[in-house]
Structure formats: C-alpha cells, structure tokens
Amino acid sequence: MAGRVVLAIGGGYGIAGLATALLSLTLPMSRAEAVTTATLASFAIMVGIVVVAFAARSLARAAAIVGGLALLLGAALWLVMGSTTGFTP
C-alpha cells in the first residue's frame, strides 16, 4: 500500500501538472482562458489519477499506467514547448 500512496501523490500531482502545462499551451482559446481552464481541471485530473493508482490490479500495473501517461504528456509538452519557443513574445 505504501507504494501506491507514493505513486498516487507523486504521480497524481506530476500528471496533473504536466497536463495543466500542456493544455495551457494547446487548448484552442486565448492564452488566459486556456490557462484558467487547464488549472481548473487539474484537480479533477489529480483525483482521477489517485483513484487509478489505488484501483489498478497490482502496483506494477498502476506504476505502468501512471508512468506511461507521464511519459506521453511529458513528450507532448516537450514537442509543444519546442515548437512555440520561437514565437512567444
């Protein structure tokens, strides 16, 4: 259970943070609106990840889901950041 607790807290916040950053840059609305929407949604995302971390059949499976998601989001964020650095004021 201790492993799941750590995974839920670290993974939950990490994924919520990555998703917030990614959505802030990619949502099809003005910058301020995108950041607000993403930040408002982030806490629901975190709760969802915590539930997944505890609901998965085994710790390894939970870690795989959370880790995979984090990698996916991280890679997407890296691509988006790379493509926008030239444009941002």
Binding site: A16, G17, L18, T20, A21, L22, L23, S24, L25, R31, A34, V35, A38, T39, L40, S42, F43, A44, L77, M81
Partner: peptide
C-alpha cells in the same frame, strides 16, 4: 473543489509557468 480553486494558481502554477 472550490476551496482548492481559490488558491489554484499557488497549488498548480504550471499552466502559468508554461504560458506566462
């Protein structure tokens, strides 16, 4: 939920970090 939202930008600053 709204309680967390009152300090959302402090708890979850990463959107502002990325976009601003």
């Amino acid at each position: 939920y709204t309680g967390v939202v009152t300090l959302a930008i402090m708890y979850m600053p990463w959107g502002v970090t990325a976009a601003y």
